[in-house]
Design a protein around this nucleic acid. Structure first.
Lengths: 341, 341
DNA sequence: CCTCTCAATGGAACCGGTTTCATTTTTTTA
DNA sequence: TAAAAAAATGAAACCGGTTCCATTGAGAGG
């Protein structure tokens, strides 16, 4: 049983009540006060307040061909990295009178594709995306329709879009410098499956490169772990531990999610950080400071990344046609107890 | 300099190309295949694919008076509690062909009010809100326009809406039972300012009541902390510690955010959990298991709360007129090392 | 063969704004 | 004071769909 619909107040109601035409009200709404007689303006103002009128964004959007909606497609909304970016983006978005449509893909290309379609149907004015990298065609079709796209964290080969992220190479290099300084005999790199994800690729490549440059023996110890598979992390971790018995060792976790899983696994194995094993993470979640004597970690300026991405999108929405650029923020290495002997 | 607009393909283009009327295409879009000759259907299908046509949701919404948008207003999007709820809500939302507009208020009533207005302008079909409790009029105006509202975590006096949350009273009682069993001489409750927030009120009330029932001395030790103020937590924590010198003691953190801050503070004071001080939290963030020997915590079924909230909203959007109800999930107490002597 | 149904389709109004262009009113200027 | 210019306002078309109602055509029944 459906409820009776109460008709909402429209521009026509306001016009009638104020004794002017729709056109005049529309001018008021657009803020063209200079075309309005002061007393007319006042009358409309009062009427709007009295009727509690709120213009219908869909009607406006239909005519103007703009929705005042920005789409944000993220791979994992429960990841603190993601939420910090959303927060930054959302702040700027809000300040500019836009709203944010947030979509969570769980790194599933199919979901991502569906979402892009839905967002397109909503005629979003712009899209910020942390993409799986498997929907290039869909993204290109957005671009064809002149909807600006900004990539966050992950760039995609063959797509010439703006990209906001951090300088993964320098950050990893600095961290590795620190680890190598501490003379660990073995250093392993744990990451989610690299596949086509640019940030994972950059980080693992920088890891390997650092070790090679120092002629360190561990340069091949990159473990790719699918966290969705129950025991995979523990299996690979055990493998590393067994192969490095009686050697001093460290693990470099490629992002915050992996870092947490490794901390938990180490806990379960009743090992101690850093005595049995040192640990360093890319991403510096709030809790890193609270585990043991603190976990060394690379902090990304996540809020700023979100801000930058939204600013870029909005400038394009408003007509800028700067060429696509890659903005790489500098990440900060925070050294704590977990990597100090 | 604004770019030249490429006109998007519309229903008219499809109709023309397929050699039928807009009406017929519209019927196809609505899925009324039984009113279509099979070969007509096929022709439209092909044309849509060929032109890569995607119907404009705004045009549809304007006529149908529905946006297929659900608003979600949250107090703190960086809180894992919040993101887990969003994730649950989003999953259901997506499965039903709706999109989620996420707004982050930072617990600021002004921002909340602005957002409700914006969402109203977008003609959202429903609203899920974790409210500051200071915008009752705005929420009532939504209800007046027949837009269903579901409250999450916090109910508001005077607003007869559906509400999804947990049974705070039972959860706190169970946790207190555990703490009292452990014979702590002093137990303090740290919470963000209670103000009008129902969940905070319920939890602190249950805390006090539990202690009174057991004639425990600590029943007045409720500390309200504004985390935005730099030193407030440390000041109040020190106060508690000094007043309980040489006594065994525990702290009950009223939510995950407070819990994290307390862990960090204890860390800074170089105190040990649970030897110097025991700790238990409402909310069981993923990292709780990884701090020290694990932090005892009350886990809320956050994902399920999000799911339930969205299901409730959608059922109302689709016409259900069940009376408002309060759904209280059962929280689960996970006892770990932090409260065991 | 002619009506009668019923399936298939189209025409046109409508949703609530914006925008173009014309018209009315007011002010300025000669 | 009349003409010209400027300011204020309104009528109507439009945005891209949906929906009501009318129309067409084919097969059924008499």
């Amino acid at each position: 049983m459906s409820k009776s619909q109460i008709p909402r107040v429209t521009i026509k109601d306001v016009a009638l009540q104020a004794g002017v035409s729709k056109t005049t009200v529309s001018r008021y709404l657009a803020g063209n006060y200079n075309e309005l007689a002061p007393k007319t303006k006042k009358r409309i103002e009062d009427t709007i307040a009295a009727l509690n009128y709120r213009p219908n964004v869909m009607a406006r959007g239909l005519k103007r061909n703009t929705s005042h909606l920005i789409g944000m497609v993220v791979a994992d909304i429960t990841n603190p990295y993601t939420t910090a970016i959303i927060r930054g983006a959302e702040d700027i978005c809000n300040q500019n009178g836009y709203n944010l449509l947030v979509c969570n893909t769980d790194n599933d290309p199919q979901k991502e594709s569906d979402y892009i379609s839905m967002l397109q149907a909503h005629r979003i004015d712009g899209l910020i995306i942390n993409t799986t990298g498997r929907n290039n065609e869909a993204l290109k079709s957005l671009a064809l329709e002149n909807i600006p796209v900004v990539l966050v964290d992950r760039k995609v080969k063959g797509l010439d879009f703006d990209m906001i992220g951090v300088d993964n190479h320098s950050a990893v290099k600095e961290a590795m410098h620190h680890l190598i300084d501490q003379d660990f005999e073995r250093i392993a790199f744990f990451t989610e499956p690299i596949e086509g994800v640019s940030s994972r690729k950059e980080r693992s490549a920088a890891f390997e490169q650092s070790l090679r440059k120092h002629n360190h023996a561990s340069w091949e110890e990159i473990y790719e772990v699918d966290l969705a598979k129950e025991d995979e992390l523990m299996t690979k971790l055990s493998h590393f531990l067994e192969s490095s018995k009686n050697q001093s060792k460290a693990i470099f976790a490629a992002n915050g999610v992996v870092l947490l899983q490794i901390v938990v696994a180490i806990q379960n194995l009743k090992l101690s950080i850093p005595d049995d094993i040192a640990l360093l993470g890319f991403d510096d979640p709030e809790w890193a400071i609270a585990v043991g004597t603190g976990i060394s970690a690379i902090a990304q300026p996540t809020y700023e990344i979100g801000v930058a991405a939204m600013e870029k999108i909005l400038s394009k929405v408003k007509g800028s046609n700067m060429l696509p650029q890659t903005i790489a923020f500098t990440a900060k290495l925070n050294i704590r107890g977990s990597t100090q002997k």
